[in-house]
Design a binder for these strands. Structure first.
Length: 574
RNA sequence: CGGGGUGUAGCGCAGUUGGGUAGCGCGCAGCGUUUGGGACGCUGAGGUCGGAGGUUCAAGUCCUCUCACCCCGACCA
């Protein structure tokens, strides 16, 4: 491809609104164009990258035994109502009304549709297992699109669905996908890590995410350097600081004027925050509840939501506890009735906590569970954080930010039961199909690749997903010898099947070199009067500082070798 | 939805306080001189100042309403 003909230009300046590196570089390189919030056009360079990623994914899915098919974006809303996932997705579901006044959803994912399809064609255990996948556009009306391609409302995604006759089969399918995903990230030149995850609106039991660590990642994970335990903080467990056991003392009121946060309370009484009990109010599907947890620990809302099996969970507004007759700032479950109390397991150890007095400017000392209050539900609703103990081995957890580039789920049978997808087993008994699903967002993967592979000059594409292999940079195109040599080499490289981006513009060297660095093509070949004096061209890898002068004689073969030898990228970390 | 912010030429911004002929840099077009790390000179094109309503002799600037986009929280590939 000649740059003089390429649609899209690099830009010197980039809109101030772009904050993440990948967003800035994609805009600066002229690879994407924003049409609306979370909606982008891909220009040719970005599209080439996306197709390369897609082909790697397709290849690995096929190798794992997947069969590709195509499913509709338009889906009747009834299908979503049948599984109840219209409520789980809530406002994220794009819906529209057709001319006959029927409500349709734009598919945010395709479990419902594919299960219906499988139901029609699978009758017997002999038809199982089966792995089906599609790579296509999905729609989610995200509350807040952000970070360029990292979080958008319309995006290309690969989803594979597995259908097995039992849990054992599901595990096998799951492991196949696990391996395929590792291969995908590896081939895309990305270092990813597998972490335990929450399944969210998709539903199901076990799920894992593949994370790419970056400074700007929106997900937080904890991990244990000792045993390798890794989990998204959405679901991570941890061993909290242990408190000394004490003999329970009698309850005692204490005046605490002007104190209404845990921090103030601890300071006021000169005790650690871990000796206090915190009461957090949530509105759960319109109803008020209290979450009780040790003062030094945060409530994990994902865990809480899962336990309550609710659709909407949010922190209560300030006026809501008051309306219920509760004193925000001095609230506790002690002596409270008529409101659901969910307590964290952390409060079962330790003793003689300080809790709210349910009266203004008053707290109570020596509160002990279960002596002084009851919990309707006792569960782990604690947020894990770095420095706490590993739940598996007791090591010290660390944490890091990352981008979720893949998510796999063991769905089990809840969708097949709801949608009536049953098969007949070897004993002639009708059973629900055991399902799994496995997703990768292509655009996000593209953005993550940039997040992980760039420097202050621009992108550094891994060879396997680079839009082109070679940036052919000819300096002083008006010099006929340069032009002739460059054209000659361009033709030769293309004839060898190499993908060449040929900078044939009459621009100054500075412009060309800067664009080459920005666009991040893995290998740069420069031809100029200077190199031609020695019958040579200069070869430089984008990822390295040094360059070398190479004779034009045989250079095409040499470059072909260089391209194939740099195909495979980083190894997967686990 | 809650909080914060921004809308002026394709892009980056100034001008708004205190109303008075719409500006700068980049980019774009033409000519010339240059050029191994974002060159220089001259000439030129390009703007419903996000939109609607209002105040005023006069509105980018003041008032009201509204829309879009970005950032922080709840959601996800």
């Amino acid at each position: 491809m000649r740059i003089s003909k390429l649609f899209g230009k690099t830009q010197r300046e980039v809109p101030a609104e772009a904050e993440t590196v990948s967003h800035q570089l994609l805009l600066k390189a002229g690879m994407i164009y924003q049409v609306a919030a979370g909606v982008y056009s891909y220009l040719p360079l970005a599209w080439r990258v996306l197709k390369k990623i897609e082909n790697i994914i397709r290849d690995e899915m096929d190798k794992a035994g997947g069969q590709e098919l195509m499913l509709p974006v338009l889906q009747p809303i009834e299908l979503w109502q049948e599984t109840g996932r219209d409520r789980a997705f809530g406002k994220s579901l794009f819906t529209l009304i057709d001319r006959k006044e029927r409500q349709l959803a734009l598919g945010p994912t395709h479990e419902e549709v594919i299960t219906g399809l499988v139901n029609r064609y699978v009758d017997s255990y002999r038809d199982l297992p089966i792995l089906l996948y599609q790579i296509q556009t999905k729609f989610r009306d995200e509350p807040r699109p952000r970070g360029g391609l990292l979080r958008v409302r319309e995006f290309s995604m690969k989803d594979l669905y597995s259908f097995d006759s039992d849990e054992e089969g599901l595990s096998q399918s799951y492991n196949k996908m696990l391996q395929a995903y590792e291969n995908i990230y590896n081939r895309c030149g990305l270092v990813s890590i597998l972490v335990e995850a929450d399944s969210g609106a998709i539903g199901g039991k076990d799920s894992h995410e593949f994370m790419i660590f970056t400074e700007t990642g929106e997900d937080e994970t904890v991990h244990c350097p000792d045993c390798g335990y890794s989990a998204n903080t959405d679901r991570a467990q941890s061993v909290k600081e242990k408190l000394a056991e004490e003999k329970p003392l009698p309850i005692e009121e204490v005046a605490t004027p002007g104190v209404d946060t845990i921090k103030e309370l601890a300071n006021f009484l000169n005790i650690p925050q871990s000796r206090t009990l915190k009461a957090v109010f949530y509105a759960v599907d319109g109803k008020l509840i209290i979450a009780v947890i040790r003062g030094d620990i945060e409530v994990n809302e994902v865990k809480l939501k899962n336990i309550l099996r609710c659709v909407e969970l949010r922190l209560a507004r300030e006026d809501e506890p008051e309306e219920a007759g509760l004193i925000a700032g001095s609230a506790s479950p002690v002596g409270i009735t008529g409101i659901q109390v969910i307590a964290d397991e952390s409060i079962t150890s330790g003793a003689n906590y300080v809790a709210g007095g349910n009266k203004p400017d008053t707290h109570i000392k020596n509160v002990n569970y279960p002596r002084d209050f009851e919990a309707d539900i006792m569960a782990d609703i604690a947020q894990a954080k770095a420095g706490e103990g590993c739940p598996k081995c007791g090591g010290i957890l660390t944490s890091s930010h990352g981008i979720e580039v893949g998510h796999i789920f063991k769905l089990g049978t809840f969708l097949s039961k709801k949608l009536g997808a049953f098969f007949t087993d070897a004993d002639g008994v009708s059973r629900p199909i055991v399902m799994g699903c496995y997703g990768i967002g292509l655009g996000r993967l593209l953005a993550a690749a940039i997040e992980q592979n760039h420097d202050d000059k621009g992108i550094i594409w891994p060879m396997s997903i680079a839009p082109y292999h070679i940036y052919l940079c000819s300096l002083y195109m008006e010099n006929p010898e340069v032009a002739a040599a460059a054209e000659n080499l361009y033709a030769k490289l293309e004839s060898k099947g190499l993908e060449v981006l040929y900078d044939d513009r009459r621009e100054s060297p500075g412009v060309k070199f800067n664009d080459a660095d920005l666009l991040g093509i893995p290998i740069r070949v420069t031809i100029s009067p200077r190199t031609l004096e020695k019958n040579s061209a200069e070869i430089k890898k984008r990822s390295e500082k040094k360059s070398q002068l190479v004779p034009l004689e045989g250079i095409a073969d040499r470059l072909a070798g260089l391209v194939s030898s740099t195909q495979v990228g980083a190894k997967l970390a686990r």
